[in-house]
Amino acid sequence: MDHFPTNWGRPRNDAFDAYATYPIHQRPYNGPKDTFADGVQRTQQPIVTGTSVLAIKYKDGVMMAADNLASYGSLARFKDVQRLHQVGNYTVIGAGGDMSDFQYIQYILEELSIDEISAQDGHELGPIEIHEYMSQLMYARRSKMNPLWNSLLIGGFKDGKRFLSYVDLLGTTYSASTLATGYGAFIAQPLLRKAVEGREDVITEEEARKILEDSMRVLFYRDARSMNKFQIATISSAGVSISDSMQLETAWSFAENIRGYGAQTQ
């Protein structure tokens, strides 16, 4: 059985839909044509993109890492982009995916923060509220078929509680003690889980930093859209701090000994 309801009742010829069985967003249209309709563009693919964001919970809070590269396809286009962004006094939001959409998100959150300050009601936005707001925004935009093309990690520390959660262009959310977006979900996440799961209350800040640095190094070795220049954000009872950009020690001497691929040795 086909469990995907968008496929049900669809005629085999996609050009003909006698029974109007298509979901509205992809129904063939035969009415009068708006000449300028093509002028209205929606994001159908990301253009300038950031790669993975990594984050873990540790003893005192949450730590997050992302490199400073924004790629244009395979071109390393912008090499000094900050992908970790502070929101309010308790939250950091890290973004992979389309960087122009991320800049728009930063603008929206700036507006939100100022509205919240102006209210002078004694309430401050924490990571839980920021995450709920972002998941509603991302889901609303995907439902308009006009998504913000990002995977976001939202980490924070407020009222003695650490918080780490994910939301993406579909509005999908989840939280766990280790999270990774993009290629990091395949390459870094297993390393993070092995190092962190069950030890969230033991890991010190130094250890947490080492875990993230090691994972960032692996990503730099393996992810062609990554760069050896990144930042780390820590969010704890002491507040938010986002580090200056840093580099890691890497070793490439082994490359000289590589001959061919796999079994091929010449």
Binding site: H25, T43, Q44, R142, M145, L170, T172
Partner: peptide
């Protein structure tokens, strides 16, 4: 994120935003 498979890279394809996924 779905890992891209090899043949999808081989020839050009129309890309459209798919608002659904399946979370098991």
């Amino acid at each position: 994120m779905i890992m891209p498979d090899m043949d999808s890279l081989a020839h050009p394809q129309e890309r459209r935003f798919n608002p659904y996924t399946e979370n098991g």
